[in-house]
Amino acid sequence: MNMPVLTSLRRRFAALAVLIASLPGAADAQADPAATFTALRAVDQRMATIAYRLTTANAPLCRGLVPVPGWAVHSLGQYDPAMRDQARTSFGFEAPIAVEAVVAGAPAARAGVVANDSILAVNGQPLRGAPGAKADSNARDAAQAVIARQPAAAALRVELVRGGARRTVAIAAPAGCPGSFEVLLGPGMDASADGSIVQIAVRFFERYTDDQVAVVVAHELAHNILRHRARLDAAKVSRGLLAEVGRNGRLFRQTETEADLLGMHLLRNAGYDPQLAVAFWRDHGGDVDGGLFRSRTHPSSKARAQAIADEIARIPAGSPRPYLPPLLATRDTPLQ
């Protein structure tokens, strides 16, 4: 549960060269800047699809359920001012908030929502936010908060505009686990969860299949479901140089193991093969945690894979999906 400062790096566009180098499928972006935005949409759609599958299938394991339409939304203000004209051209912004991507077969898609629709209001509540002089995600975050406050079991009335034509659609969004999911640009292999946001580095999408990326997303979502950040803070753990020492290291390793185990259950509930988690941590854990040079806040790859395999063996035969593992009962237990 590496936790960088959540500055929404994926949206800064501060250096186009970094973006081009980071995004799979953007090799020609230097000659054609529109290719950068095409590649960005593609990777965000992959993330949105994984997140939709995990959050809706595991709603019974989560608290504070929210409607999950099955889309990725963004704001014009997230893009560097120098890139906003291209963003308007590529993403069709006719309002501050727009639909970047739609999950195939999800309620938003069934309601006729398509990428590049701009969103004017949700259940009569306008979505606003004029772009500022610097890139930030404030308008996007405010829009997501409006959506999250809507009743989880009721249809969303969404007012859209495209090509100057307005329309209102009803989206029968299912209830799902709360939180937002972001792709981080740059060369690192970072993955983090802060209690509400899950961030995954774009390098995961470059290197791994969507099923493999889902293992990492499920692990981070498990941290949020188990309230690890809040419980570690309540336990007054030390981070930084002291994170690996004594009680600090023990508690961090405990939460990492718990996230591995619950993450496997989240995958299984969402229809993934739970053995994916065993194979991923066994074969690729060293790529993620640094191998021999890993932080001792994380168990070894071999230990992670074995613990998950043992947890799979403990699932009662014929267990329903979603299955609520006993580990969920610990989410309010103080870490000692």
Rank of each mutant, 00 (worst) to 15 (best):
S8E: 14
S8D: 10
R10F: 08
R12H: 10
L19D: 11
D32Q: 12
T38N: 03
A42Q: 13
A42I: 01
A42R: 10
V43C: 06
Q45Y: 00
R46V: 07
T49Q: 04
T49D: 10
L54V: 09
T56N: 05
T56W: 10
L65T: 03
Q78V: 01
G92E: 13
E94G: 04
P96D: 08
G105S: 10
A106Y: 14
R110H: 09
G112I: 11
I119A: 04
N123C: 10
P131A: 09
A133W: 03
K134M: 13
D136F: 10
D136L: 06
A139F: 13
Q144L: 14
A153K: 10
R157D: 10
V161T: 11
V161I: 14
P174F: 14
C177W: 06
P178D: 08
R207S: 07
V215C: 00
V217I: 12
L221M: 15
L241S: 11
A243N: 07
G249S: 02
T257I: 11
M264T: 04
N269V: 03
N269E: 05
Y272N: 06
Q275D: 07
H284L: 03
H284R: 10
V288I: 09
G291Y: 07
G291S: 11
R294H: 06
S295T: 07
S300F: 01
A305Q: 03
Q306F: 01
E311S: 08
I312P: 03
P316L: 00
A317C: 03
P320Y: 06
T330M: 02
D332W: 11
